[in-house]
Structure formats: C-alpha cells, structure tokens
Design a protein around this nucleic acid. Sequence first.
DNA 1: TTTGACATGTAATGAGTTACATGATTTC
DNA 2: GAAATCATGTAACTCATTACATGTCAAA
Lengths: 210, 210
Amino acid sequence: MSLRFALLALLSSGAMTGYDVSKHFSQSVAHVWHAPDSQIYPELRRMSVEGLLEVETVKWGARGEKKEYHVTDAGFEALRAWVNTPIEVRRQRDPAFLKAAYLEWADAESVREEMRTQIRFHQSLLDLLEHTRATLLDRTHPTLVRRLARIPSADHDRIVAWKVFAYDGLIAQARLQIEWARRGLELVETFDSAGLAPLEDPPYASTPSP
Amino acid sequence: MSLRFALLALLSSGAMTGYDVSKHFSQSVAHVWHAPDSQIYPELRRMSVEGLLEVETVKWGARGEKKEYHVTDAGFEALRAWVNTPIEVRRQRDPAFLKAAYLEWADAESVREEMRTQIRFHQSLLDLLEHTRATLLDRTHPTLVRRLARIPSADHDRIVAWKVFAYDGLIAQARLQIEWARRGLELVETFDSAGLAPLEDPPYASTPSP
DNA sequence: TTTGACATGTAATGAGTTACATGATTTC
DNA sequence: GAAATCATGTAACTCATTACATGTCAAA
C-alpha cells in the first residue's frame, strides 16, 4: 500500500509520464521506499483506474505515445488522509541483524568479508544521502525544484525542512550501521586471535532425543 | 528465504515441536526477523520435505500428536553456507521515513500524534530489547540455555557475544528512532507556532499541463 | 466443566522480485 | 547507422499478511 502513497507524493510535485515518474522516483522517493519499474507502471495504471490519477495520452514523435499522470482531487484527498493517519508499525526484518545473531557458525574470514560488505554498502548509501540532502538544502534537487515552482514561497521552508528531516534520519541510520559493522570487525578479531574455530560440526547428532 | 535460515538457526539450539518453535521464535529470532505462525508451520514442513529437517512424530496424551523437528546434516550445512556467504543487501523500505518526507501535507496535530506513536512503539521495543540483552548476558534466556547446554563451554562466550552484538545494533537503532521522532516533535512546533497551515489544497488543479 | 495453554495448520489475498519483452526517438 | 535514452510494460514466482479453522490436553 505504501508504494501507492510514494507515487502520489511524488506526483504531487507535478504531472509526469510513467518514465519520468520512474526517473524522479529513483532520485528521491526511492531513498525511503524503493520499487522497480515493473512495480511502478502497473501501480500507476491501477491508481488511474481507481480515480487517484488522471491519464493524459501525449503524442511523442511520429508514432510514439506516452502517458502523463495527474493527481486528481481524490488523489490529493487520499494523500492527505494518509499523512494524517498514524502509521502502521512494522516490525523489523533485517537479514544483517538476523545473520549477526548467529555468527558463531561462520568462520572469521567470512565475518570480516560480511562486515566489510556492510560498511561499503552503507558508506556509499551515506554519500548518496548526504549529497541528496545538500541538493535539498540549496534547493537544486530536480523533483524539489518542480515542487516548489507550484507552491507559494511561504511554504517552501517547511517543505524543505520535512524532507531534510527524513534524510537526517536515514543518514543517522547509515552512520549507525557503519559503526556497528566496525564493532563487528573488532569483535571477530578478539575471537580469531584467541584461536577459536567456528562451530564446524553440529553440536548434537541429527538423531531424535526423546 | 531468510525465514528458512531464521528457523534453522533457532532449531540449531536443539530439536523442537512446531509449537515450541513458534514460542521460542517470538522470544528470540523474531526480534530480528518477525514471522507469524501461519508462515512458520508451512515453512517447517517444506524444510523437512527438502531434507533440511527431520520430523519425528511424538504421541501427546491419548489422541494428540506433535511433530518434533531436528536439523539434519544437510540443514547444518545450509546454515553454515548461509552465514559464510556475503549478505544480499536490501534497500530500505520504511513507511515512517516515507511519510516523514511528505509531512507538509499533514496538519500539526497529526504530526504530533504520529511522532508520539513512533516514540511509544520504539520505547517499548527498546525495553524489550534491553531486557532480552540482559537475559543473554546473564545466560538465563530460555533459547540460549538450551543452546549452550549442548555445546562445549569454550564456545559459550563467543555465542553470547554475537547475540549481544546483534541486540546492541537493534538497541542503537531503536534509540535513534526515538531521538529522531523527538526532533520531529520539535520541528512541528516551530511551524505551528509560526501559524503555518498544512497544504490543504492541491497547489495546482488536476487539469493537464501541455 | 471450563479455562488456558498446547497443537497445527488452510485459504485468500497482496506485495515484491526477477527476468524477460518490445519498440520509438533522438543524438552522434 | 549505432548507441543512448525514452517509453511501457508482462509473466512467473516467491514471500508475507490477514483471517480463519479446528481440535487436544492438563489443571483448577
């Protein structure tokens, strides 16, 4: 259900074709809610069927066509209803933490590789998030530019502030993950230098116990 | 796919019936990978079909029956293969951050309610995580007790350390979310006291722009 | 004999992933 | 004429959610 509101929120910045949605999406909303094209196009269609969006078919070149999606009044209403209802709280489901809890089964080198992978991933995510945050603050972010152009300037500060707030949260999380993985890297050394081998064999046979 | 390894990891502490799995699950693995019973039972069956688990049917009372699941050698191998392969990195998908980025559409009171809900949720999660962490450290956690009983004591420290490490990550995340929501609470006051109303109407009509 | 814990699921639906499939237009 | 980008999806599958469904056993 969230994808629908992610798209509604994106399209509230101005009408776009499916292709533009997919491009803007990856540079903005995707940082908080990732989705592939194969999920975006069908959802846009569904939303227009349900009256949240209006489709305008636009000629493109000689034979080409594209669809431009506009948020309808019902769409804006749905968007406002969504932001004004308390969130559905979801419990965490992160494979990194799941795996971390059972690393006694891993050998030291795999743990190191795992932690390094984590650090690399979250570091490059962090770079991206910080860069995006900067383009929000200086108001050069393409989706933000479109958005602000249609809105009285009295509201600009607040719009930017909430987006920066969201990115601050994401940035803090990424930093945390990096720090955490670094501590994992330290931890594995203490065991490895103590000469502890991983649990290589089942601690009990696969025979049933009565 | 992760559910499978969550179950394998849990059952690596000793054989259990489906019911016991479901009970232990909610007190341990669920903190890193939540799943309802309706997902657990069928997955256990599938895993036994695929040879990762062995089922022993145990009589229970006069008419009752229960199934005890044992990790097979193939199961342990799969578990070890999983912890020794670098993780599939997944991009974030958190409705809280998604919503935060578009709070210019919300009215002040809804934002307050939202942030308070977030704080309440993560505070009670934090309490649970800290309590669980303590039972790991003093080694009274029921699943951990079962696990350690079957393993040479030389390995105990390391087993506990990785689990505590995982909980440390979760605890840090929960704290972060609370702090973040508190800053959201401050932010909404600055706008509300400035007398800014939410964007109550679409900033542009639903008419197509050429 | 009633309550609470024990025990095991199914069925329907929705959300998300992966891989594939196709063609037009613009720019070099 | 080739390459990049614009444009729009489908199909098959897996995973997760929600709601329901049913019965046993032990203890008070």
